[in-house]
């Protein structure tokens, strides 16, 4: 028994060293990580990387898309380099809160809930929600028609919140099915397991085209309008940067650069502000 105690004491000591050395190494990492970023002025941007044509990765693993080019132009004007971090969308805002990234490029809609928590840049895109339905579907012509139907949403995004809220106010008759990521969702509609999937119109249009599935948009109207901007954590030091950032976005909008980028990446012009 004595021996066992001795051994366990030894093992505890080892484990302590283990833990302490782990702490030490992370501290030094933190120092080396934060100092140069202050000098070189790096803007750390997080994204799911799976939201074409706004953000995706090319064959070499580099970021590409409308969001990317907008950010690069703004960053260039302000003297910042962009550093990309790709992560599951469900983790992105956690990373923003924890200070591991400075902003998010994922066509983030400026919803009231998000505005309450984050400061947004001037909008750099405008679009809205649509429904993806099977091409033979003739029942779904408005959001009212979704009652009693099974509708897929991407877990935790603004369309999910929109649909949940609408459902609550209108009798909870829509069967909302959240998905962790968008990979299989269009197939679900094509296979008839879902009656519709709610998505941003631009994404939906290009995905239906690219995926070659027997799908269509339910109609031309947006279910809800959205302005899209870059979210930043609310703080005084961010405010100054954000003002400069927004001014640059506005410049790009005014001189027609955004329109050009939109034409390059998207089938629909995303730079037309919604009528108020």
């Amino acid at each position: 028994m004595k021996l066992n105690v001795k051994i366990s004491g030894l093992l505890l000591l080892i484990s302590l060293i283990f833990v302490l050395s782990a702490c030490g190494s992370t501290e030094s990492e933190a120092k080396s990580g934060s100092e140069p970023s202050a000098e070189k002025k790096v803007l750390r941007v997080g994204s799911s990387g799976i939201y074409p044509p706004f953000i995706s990765v090319d064959a070499d693993g580099k970021a590409q898309g409308y969001d990317v080019e907008v950010l690069e132009l703004v960053g260039e004007a302000l003297g910042y380099e962009i550093e990309w971090t790709f992560a599951e969308f469900s983790g992105i805002f956690g990373m923003l809160d924890a200070g591991q990234i400075d902003t998010v490029a994922n066509l983030i809609a400026m919803t009231d809930e998000r505005r309450a928590k984050y400061d947004f840049s001037t909008p750099y895109a405008y679009s809205g929600a649509t429904l993806v339905v099977h091409e033979d579907n003739e029942d779904i012509k408005s959001i009212e028609d979704l009652k009693g139907k099974k509708v897929g949403v991407l877990l935790g995004n603004n369309l999910h919140q929109f649909l949940e809220k609408w459902n609550e106010e209108n009798g909870n008759e829509i069967i909302i099915t959240p998905y962790q990521d968008v990979s299989g969702t269009y197939n679900e509609v094509a296979l008839g397991r879902l009656d519709a999937f709610i998505d941003v119109k631009i994404t939906a249009a290009s995905r239906i085209k690219n995926e070659g599935l027997p799908l269509k948009l339910y109609g031309e109207e947006y279910l809800i309008n959205f302005d899209y901007g870059f979210p930043f954590v609310r703080s005084e030091e961010n405010q100054e940067f954000l003002d400069a950032f927004s001014a640059e976005v506005q410049k790009l909008q005014d001189n027609g650069t955004l329109k050009k980028l939109s034409d390059k990446w998207s089938a629909i012009d995303v730079t037309i502000p919604h009528e108020k």
Binding site: G49, I50, S56, T85, A87, N210
Partner: peptide
């Protein structure tokens, strides 16, 4: 690990498939 931003094999496959929409092939 991709949930917190570590790009591994699974993440790379997802990123690839997002462009081509060929999820089954990638997975």
């Amino acid at each position: 690990a991709f949930t917190i931003g570590v790009v591994d094999m699974m993440a790379r496959a997802k990123l690839e498939a997002a462009v081509t929409f060929k999820f089954l092939e990638a997975y």
